[in-house]
Simulated scan of single mutants.
Amino acid sequence: MTGRQPPYVLLIEDNPLDVFLLETAFELAHVQVDLEVAQDGAAGLEVLEAACRDNRLPKMVILDYNMPKLNGAEVLTRLRQDERLSELKVVMLTTSRSHEAQIRALRADDYLIKPEGVDAAQAVALKLAAHWQ
């Protein structure tokens, strides 16, 4: 063991099954991560506000596109407008490629199609980890 702390990553995702799948994928892919989960966009912004106060911003925000209260596009717009958070690495998860143009226009660092099944989820976990490794 190297004593290195795993990167702190915020997952903003409203579907508990998608959260479980991603957590399991990180584990199976042997990707160590300090993953905090916010269950909607508004809760995610609250977590980020607290992270600013504590001077502990996440290495990455993984952001679901379709959520209640504030959707991923609304959250990403607010992040990019807030000078404290504008440089955060944000990867959006979506179920469809139809959102690609909007996601790129909002300046997401990347976007990934939500995986179906464990093997696809492991591949997504490795792609996400490549952003902070």
Rank of each mutant, 00 (worst) to 15 (best):
E83Y: 08
L17W: 05
A50Q: 15
N66Q: 14
A43E: 14
L28T: 11
A29W: 13
R80E: 04
E100K: 11
G117K: 07
P58V: 14
P58S: 11
A42I: 08
M67R: 02
P7M: 07
N55S: 15
V37M: 00
F26T: 12
K127Y: 07
S96E: 07
D64H: 10
Y111E: 02
L63M: 05
A25L: 02
K69C: 00
Q133M: 06
V19Y: 01
K89P: 07
T95F: 10
V9H: 05
A120P: 11
A73Q: 14
A123N: 10
D109P: 08
T94G: 10
N55K: 11
L63D: 13
A42Q: 10
V19L: 00
V31I: 08
V124H: 03
P68F: 10
L76Q: 06
V47A: 11
T94E: 02
P7Y: 00
R107N: 05
D40F: 15
R53Y: 11
S98Q: 04
A120K: 09
D82G: 02
L126I: 12
F26V: 08
V33K: 03
M60C: 09
T24D: 07
H30Y: 00
T77F: 00
K69N: 00
Y8T: 15
V90G: 10
I113E: 15
V31S: 03
G41Q: 04
L57N: 12
P68L: 06
D34E: 09
R84G: 01
A51H: 03
M1L: 09
K59S: 09
A130E: 09
Y111G: 05
L93A: 08
L22P: 10
Y65R: 15
D82I: 14
G41A: 10
M60E: 02
A25H: 11
L45A: 11
K59A: 14
A108N: 06
V47P: 02
E74M: 13
A43Q: 12
I12F: 00
A50R: 14
A38G: 13
V9F: 00
A50V: 09
V90H: 02
V118D: 15
L88G: 04
N71S: 01
F26Y: 10
H99C: 04
L21G: 08
V124I: 06
G41E: 08
A121Q: 01
M60L: 13
T2Y: 14
A51C: 12
E83N: 09
R56H: 12
D109M: 01
Q133C: 00
N55L: 04
A129W: 07
E46F: 03
T94W: 04
R107V: 01
A123E: 13
E23F: 07
D18M: 00
E36T: 15
L70K: 14
Y111H: 07
I62E: 02
M1R: 14
L22G: 12
R104E: 04
M92A: 01
L17A: 08
P58F: 10
I12Q: 00
D54E: 08
L106P: 09
L10K: 03
G72P: 06
D14A: 11
L48A: 02
V47W: 02
V91D: 02
L93S: 12
R104W: 05
P115V: 02
I103H: 07
K127L: 06
L21T: 15
R104A: 10
V90N: 07
D14T: 04
K89C: 10
C52W: 13
A125N: 03
L70Y: 01
G41D: 03
V33Y: 00
L76K: 03
G41F: 11
Q39T: 15
V31H: 03
E46K: 13
E27H: 14
L45G: 06
P68M: 14
L17C: 08
